[in-house]
Amino acid sequence: MTPVQRTVTKTVIALIGMVCFTIALVPLYDVFCQITGLNGKVASQAQPIISEEVDTSRYVTVQFITRTGSGLPWRLEPLDRQVRVHPGQSYKVLFAFTNYGDEARRGRAVPSVSPSEASLHLRKVTCFCFQEQRLEAGEHLRLPVVFQLTTDLPESVHTVTLAYTLYPAANNPTLGERAMPAQGGDA
């Protein structure tokens, strides 16, 4: 190999390395979000409850916000708009799903947590957001979210807001889709 060929080969190897790195960035981002709680992303599958002593010395307000995106004739409402919880204890909150359209549809609730620091300390045992839901025309359904705030939640957090946005599920999931894992959750 001439020196030029050697240099070009090395450069191309570096280039291929960067291409691989770019492809890896997407899963890396997800991992990074899970570790740091960046962007209020929460685990997309069920986590076990940690049995720890309930911190009865403080209350944290947990708010629920629900929204429906375009194209899905559904309504989603929490039965309790907000609850006051002790860190360490697990709670169950019911959400009412209604399909007021005239055909069966599949939908998916996308979760978000604010402040994002709190997402590290929120464990969900059960959530309808772990998988798609299917509702018949006019069907009415109550589904639970069972969650726990861990006791190491920073003292500065007094309010945690959980938001769920309903979107129509893609009818035919295509290649490469980063679908929410279907396992976990009993809802």
């Binding site: 375009s70 899905l72 129509p168």
Partner: peptide, 11 residues
């Protein structure tokens, strides 16, 4: 009422 998904038409 429901908008059209993947477009600018909201619900």
């Amino acid at each position: 009422l429901n908008g059209v998904s993947e477009t600018a038409m909201p619900a």
